[in-house]
Computed example of a mutant assay.
Amino acid sequence: MADSESTSEFESETVDDPIQNLSNEKLYELLQNILTENEKLTMENEMFEKFLRRVEPNALGGGAGLLGSSTASQASQQEAAPTRGVRKRSRSKGSASERTLRLTAEQKCDIAQREIEELREELKRMEGDCEKIIDKKLAMIEETQVRAIEIKKFEHEFHRDVIVGGVSKRTGKVECEKFERHHRDLIGKRHALINKLVLKNQALKVSLRKLKSQLRQKEEMGDVLSKVDFDQLKIENSQYMDKIDEKNQELLKLKLMAGRTLQVLNQHKKKLAFLNKELDRIKADIQQRNDLLRRVDAEATIAEEERLKAEVINRRLREQLSDYKVPEVLEYVNCMADLYELQKKERIWDRKVDIAKMAVDRHQRIWKQIAKESQK
């Protein structure tokens, strides 16, 4: 009997449960809706915990307990769903406790509004910090660019005044005097820049003191100032900010123009250095050609003198040739006969000389033998 009653009660509960009659697609859609609702509740709980942690850090345990109790009540409600007919009284008690722990919509909106304002303030603080960091980085970049331009300028001047302009034409090495002069000029420029910056720093300090005194006076007179004065100050501030932006834009344009001008100037300086080298080469070539021309002129003068001398000799030889008379044939024959006779006599005397030399040699040998015998 008891089994039949329990079976009939279970059948009545399954018939009353609407989930059993849903299809798989409907169940999946219902599950997705429940998961979405759970995510919303989780985000809402995190927001409430954050608000409670910021407002009352000591009450976080109690708040967590309250949130935990609400979550537990929801879980107990889900567990009680299959046995809805058996535990109706306990579920009614749980719903009553939930009604006592839940926040109203107005309270939730107030907390959400405060959290939004807190997030906005935090974003503003982060934005201010980021702007400060960006300003510092931009200042560092600008300083680096200025230093790079100064280094390039110093390198160009050093190359122009010392490496190129300081080379001695006689020795081909850099002169120490020009190197020292370049460094003295550089140190003088640095001292002038330091003095200029010191004066500028002093002027800025004076203006800063004036501005601080004006700010102090304005703070003292802040209670007296009216809304119109504040509006006027805002208008003036906006006007000054616009002017500052315009000046910054002009300064940026001037910096870009100065950079381009410096690039063009460096290009022209390089071109000028190249043209100076070409001019020196052309001057050396002209000097060599002038030396060659002087040597050619000297050789031409010498050749002209030799030509004149040759003309004089040629004229004299021509005159001698024109005055020359051929001797008679008989005279030539007689001269040749005399020549043959003289040559014959020369051969005879050569034989006599050879015979005399042989006799002298023989007498010398005999004399030497006699001298040796007499010595013995």
Rank of each mutant, 00 (worst) to 15 (best):
S4G: 09
S6E: 14
E9A: 15
E9W: 13
S12M: 06
D16M: 09
N24F: 15
K26H: 10
Q32M: 15
N33H: 15
T36M: 07
N45F: 00
F51V: 00
F51G: 00
L52W: 05
L52F: 04
R54S: 04
E56H: 00
N58V: 00
G63C: 01
G63N: 01
L67M: 05
S69P: 01
S70G: 00
A72G: 11
S76M: 13
E79D: 04
A80M: 08
A80K: 01
K88R: 05
S90D: 08
S90K: 09
S92Y: 09
S92P: 04
G94V: 14
S95M: 09
R99D: 10
T100A: 14
C109R: 14
R114H: 01
E127C: 04
G128Y: 06
D129P: 00
C130S: 10
D135P: 00
D135H: 07
K136H: 08
K136P: 01
K136L: 08
K136D: 12
A139L: 06
E143F: 02
V146S: 14
I149H: 11
E150I: 01
K152W: 03
K153Q: 08
R160M: 04
R160I: 03
V164L: 13
V164C: 05
V167Q: 02
S168C: 12
R170Q: 07
G172L: 09
K173F: 02
V174I: 14
K178P: 03
R184L: 11
K189A: 07
K196P: 01
K200Q: 10
N201I: 07
L204S: 08
V206Q: 06
S207H: 06
K210L: 07
L211Y: 13
G222Y: 14
G222I: 13
D231A: 12
K234E: 08
E236K: 09
E246T: 11
Q249P: 00
Q249G: 02
L252I: 13
L252M: 14
L256E: 11
N266L: 13
H268V: 12
K270I: 06
A273G: 10
A273I: 12
A273R: 15
F274W: 05
K277I: 03
L279R: 14
R281W: 10
I282Q: 10
A284Y: 06
D285W: 02
D291R: 06
E311R: 04
R316K: 14
L317I: 09
E319Q: 14
V326A: 11
E328M: 09
Y332M: 13
Y332P: 00
V333A: 06
N334K: 12
A337W: 00
A337H: 03
L342E: 03
L342H: 02
Q343W: 05
E346R: 09
D354N: 07
A356H: 09
K357W: 07
M358C: 03
H363M: 10
H363N: 07
I366A: 10
K376D: 08
